[in-house]
Write a protein that binds this DNA or RNA. Structure first.
Lengths: 221, 221
DNA sequence: ACCTGAACACCGTTCAAGT
DNA sequence: ACCTGAACACCGTTCAAGT
């Protein structure tokens, strides 16, 4: 099919670039989001993208922010007892990341941009405030909740995806924990099973509960 | 200086490769650790390195493990009340990462390999056990402590290093938080200052205290 | 058997030169 | 003024061919 047979190449806009980037990530994974591949989808050269985004990091942040639109912040999802509401919001966030494991790996390193990220923070601040948490503590607690959720999604997502290289890294860890000499590392040898145990969601859920209990009991310095 | 003037090229070994990689990271930062650059330092082609390491991820894990040798696990550092001992071990770990900020960014994504990492886990398990924490909880708590310490070191390290691109990303976050419209995001607008506040060590220290308080009060599922 | 030159298949980003 | 072809300066990894 030649250039002439297709509809006229649409003018580029920042929104269009980011929408196409989001589609690319959805279809092929975040690992395939590169300036060159994105440019190809948009039928231009990579240089043209720099008119709309500063660099790859900014592009990733925007795509991440786009995905956060799927986090459920509706009142129905956030009804009930406050700890449960925090839990459901964080679970929804985790779910979005786990649905696209490569995305979680981006999120550990890149802060999302855009309104959905702000809305997520806002919702958590509101619920924590309604739970009676002092403002200064609530702010840092939101930070910690998202940090923990992101990191454990990245870890669990990696384990599920198993794309060869990461499977190897995983096996290496398990092997070095399980193979640790009991004379030099007695506690580790005894607890290797526990260290490696837990489905991602169980562990992540426990982490979130722990953060809420800890935050309630730890005044800010 | 020609090839003949230098001492004979030493035979490669895995240890030598990793030692040179560690020196490279110490001198130029983890961002400069590439197969090609490492090969250049070792006076070979990149292909030769694949005899000693599986791939870049394994190399990074090994270098990370090497750096963990600087974490202070001596009895003197781990004396006193148990929460303080945990705190000092984690602080020492954080200190190592903050001394080489680019390293912290590697650590969020890569598990260290080697004996120093095992020794770190062992020490934490021992202290938590002596503090009376049940085994199953202690295992997951160690995980969470290292996860939190690593992630906050990466964030704070990035802020300090300010290498242009990351400064931009930082500014973008601060700007979007501070510029959030107060009508749509009232809590966020009120707490933007708090969200961005805190020197890395203050925040990381609070996180660690919180995890210990939370772990003490949250039974495993 | 061990090692590696050269190639393959990619990257991000810049900037001079075009329209 | 806006856009982009082509170039610059890199990557990781593989494998056929050498010693």
């Amino acid at each position: 099919m030649s250039r002439r047979d297709r509809p006229a190449k649409p003018a580029l806009t920042r929104e269009g670039v980011i929408a196409t980037a989001t589609a690319l990530v959805r279809e092929e994974g975040a690992g395939r989001l590169t300036m060159r591949r994105l440019a190809q989808r948009l039928d231009t050269g990579p240089a043209s993208l720099y008119v709309y985004v500063r660099d790859t990091a900014e592009l990733q942040a925007a795509v991440l922010g786009e995905f956060l639109g799927a986090v459920d912040l509706t009142p129905a999802a956030t009804a009930g007892e406050w700890t449960g509401r925090v839990r459901r919001i964080v679970d929804s966030y985790t779910g979005v990341l786990l649905a696209h494991p490569s995305l979680a790996r981006v999120a550990v390193v890149t802060r999302p941009s855009g309104p959905h990220y702000l809305a997520l923070i806002e919702s958590l601040l509101v619920v924590l405030g309604e739970g009676g948490m002092p403002d200064d503590r609530a702010a840092w607690t939101v930070d910690l909740l998202l940090l923990v959720a992101t990191a454990s999604a990245a870890e669990h997502g990696t384990r599920r995806e198993e794309d060869g290289a990461e499977e190897a890294a995983d096996d290496a860890l398990a092997e070095s924990l399980r193979g640790a000499p009991a004379d030099r590392y007695p506690r580790l040898a005894a607890l290797a099973g526990e260290l490696l145990s837990g489905e991602g969601p169980d562990r992540a859920g426990w982490f979130v509960d722990l953060v809420l209990v800890g935050a309630a009991g730890t005044p800010r310095p």
